[in-house]
Design a protein around this nucleic acid. Structure first.
Length: 545
DNA sequence: ATAGGGTTAG
């Protein structure tokens, strides 16, 4: 072989191998590996490194390691590629072993190792490595912030983002995605809007992931117009972007618009995926569109080649059950090709509760508390079913079971953000510094509601107490306290936004409608599953939820 | 050539 060929090929092979890495073309990569050995280029560091990387990204760690071990010329890139391979394969032990033997470590090695610790849940180790690094770059911060966010430690993620800014590090698109996600989960409206403003000020490119995250954030804040604006301004949109829009519109009560968006998406030749169908079925569920839901469910496999998963079946059970077709829902469970799980039965139990089918409810509820004795919601639902028909003995029995299994009912909690500060209220809460004013406002609310024709719905009170006490208990539900606080502290026309960890109860829903009219205020409640926009005495969910 | 990101039923 002539010198000219050699020079050309040591450059060509790495390019070919990189292309294999990008396309995860393992077979092609192996063929190139064969050629590389044949022409004797396997001793080249550059070629060797692209080989290690190719095998690593294709998940063939053994092959990557073989090239690594047999190579006589290793540099920091070889070590880092091997390390990254183990990290992405979640093999932290090998990663650690390698990390400890590296001749020299640089930022990339540290960042990879932090990522490795985070992937296996060793958050504190990741943090101490981060703290001990002689220098950090945007990626170091980004890895740790996203690690916190992915482990539901959103407050820690935001705190770290503050530190990052204090050190004068400029955030980039990637780190902002994690920060926005943290804001979404914490319902940190002000901070989320600040970040969007920052993106605009710096004229950052809103790529598919960043845009999708922003849309999701605004939708979960109940700000549909802001979400739409982000969507319209995006140059490049992905399936996930459309999914976020379809989900968000439905969640905010815009079911027609949500389904129209699905049609529009298909017209734009975007191929829907399984999440799209969860969103579409969810939209139908929000309005009880049984026939339309059935159509989409059938079209999934028939027209789009997507086999429904247990989640899609769960959606269908819920759609049917919520619409009162309990028998059909139960039949669907019996005939599902995938075994039903706790959530599938849970959807049916919820439907029994809603439609007062205590016979089926008791049967399904008993099954569920058996299947998952540590779950609080099922005990509460079953207990509710007994309470609604006055079977206090059974209520006490379920209470006993809960005690026995150490099940604690998640306390209902409502949050409200006022001037950037988040206030939390539990039922009957009197711990707030402005508690006295809140009590006065609650009394005022009670008077006004009575004039609006409010009759307390005491069926849902779980306790065996007299009617008057039930009314008092109801009127101290956390969402009512939060609304009272909102009326006191937030000036019209700013809507009163409340986040609740559980679902809003019937009585609070009724009360919120009447309050929106009596006080001429817009009230937005985001509960566990969706939004309720209360305005002039009615709710965006049209009382179907 | 090697490190970091989002959406998912009840």
């Amino acid at each position: 072989m002539r010198d000219g060929d050699v020079a050309a090929d040591t450059y060509t092979y790495p390019i070919l191998l990189q292309s294999c890495s990008q396309r995860l073309a393992e077979v092609e990569g192996r063929l190139i590996h064969g050629q590389v050995i044949k022409v004797g280029f396997d001793s080249d560091v550059y070629v060797g490194n692209t080989l290690i990387n190719m095998y690593a990204v294709c998940g063939c760690l053994g092959d990557a390691r073989k090239v690594f071990d047999e190579s006589c010329a290793l540099d920091s890139v070889s070590w880092n590629s091997m390390l990254a391979g183990y990290v992405s394969a979640d093999n932290v032990d090998e990663a650690k072993w390698l990390y400890e033997r590296m001749p020299e470590r640089n930022l990339i090695s540290w960042n990879s190792m932090i990522s490795g610790y985070l992937r296996c849940g060793e958050v504190e180790k990741a943090r101490s490595l981060f703290d001990s690094m002689p220098q950090r770059d945007t990626v170091s911060w980004s890895v740790l912030i996203s690690g916190y966010a992915q482990r539901d430690r959103f407050a820690d993620a935001l705190a770290l983002f503050q530190d990052m800014q204090l050190e004068g590090i400029q955030p980039d698109e990637t780190v902002l995605v994690s920060v926005i996600s943290a804001c979404t989960h914490l319902s940190a409206l002000d901070q989320g809007a600040w970040i969007h403003a920052y993106i605009r000020k710096k004229q950052m490119k809103v790529n598919v992931i960043l845009g999708t995250t922003l849309i999701d954030m605004y939708m979960k804040f109940g700000s549909v117009p802001n979400a739409m604006e982000v969507f319209r301004a995006m140059e490049e949109k992905g399936v996930s972007t459309w999914n976020a829009l379809i989900l968000g519109l439905a969640m905010n009560g815009f079911v027609k618009e949500s389904l129209a968006t699905f049609s529009e998406m298909k017209e734009c030749n975007i191929v829907p995926n399984e999440i799209t169908f969860l969103a579409v079925l969810g939209a139908c569920r929000h309005m009880g569109l049984v026939e339309e839901g059935r159509r989409h469910f059938d079209a999934m496999s028939r027209k789009h080649g997507i086999e429904p998963t247990i989640k899609h079946y769960g959606c269908m059970v819920d759609l049917l059950g919520r619409a009162g077709k309990l028998t059909e829902a139960e039949e669907l469970i019996a005939n599902m090709p995938v075994p039903p799980d706790v959530s599938t039965w849970g959807a049916l139990l919820g439907a029994c509760k809603k439609h007062g089918d205590n016979v089926m409810g008791e049967r399904v509820g008993r099954k569920l508390v058996d299947l998952q004795p540590e779950h609080d919601g099922f005990h509460v639902l079953l207990s509710n079913i007994y309470a609604s028909k006055g079977s206090w003995d059974n209520v006490h029995e379920i209470r006993g079971m809960m005690r026995q299994h150490g099940v604690i009912k998640t306390p209902g909690c409502s949050m409200i953000e006022v001037k950037g500060t988040i206030h939390e209220f539990l039922a009957g809460d009197k711990t707030h510094p402005q508690s006295e004013d809140i009590e006065k406002m609650l009394d005022d609310m009670a008077k006004k509601l009575k004039m609006e024709g409010y009759a307390p719905d005491t069926r849902e009170v779980l306790l065996d107490i007299d009617e008057e006490d039930k009314e008092t208990t109801l009127f101290r539900h956390s969402e009512k306290i939060a609304i009272a606080f909102g009326l006191l502290t937030i000036d019209a026309p700013t809507p009163i936004r409340i986040m609740k960890n559980l679902r809003i109860c019937n009585d609070c829903h009724m009360a919120a409608k009447l309050i929106s009219r009596a006080y001429d205020r817009e009230i937005v409640v985001r509960d566990r599953h969706r939004f309720h926009h209360f305005k002039q005495g009615s709710c965006s969910c049209l009382d179907y939820w």
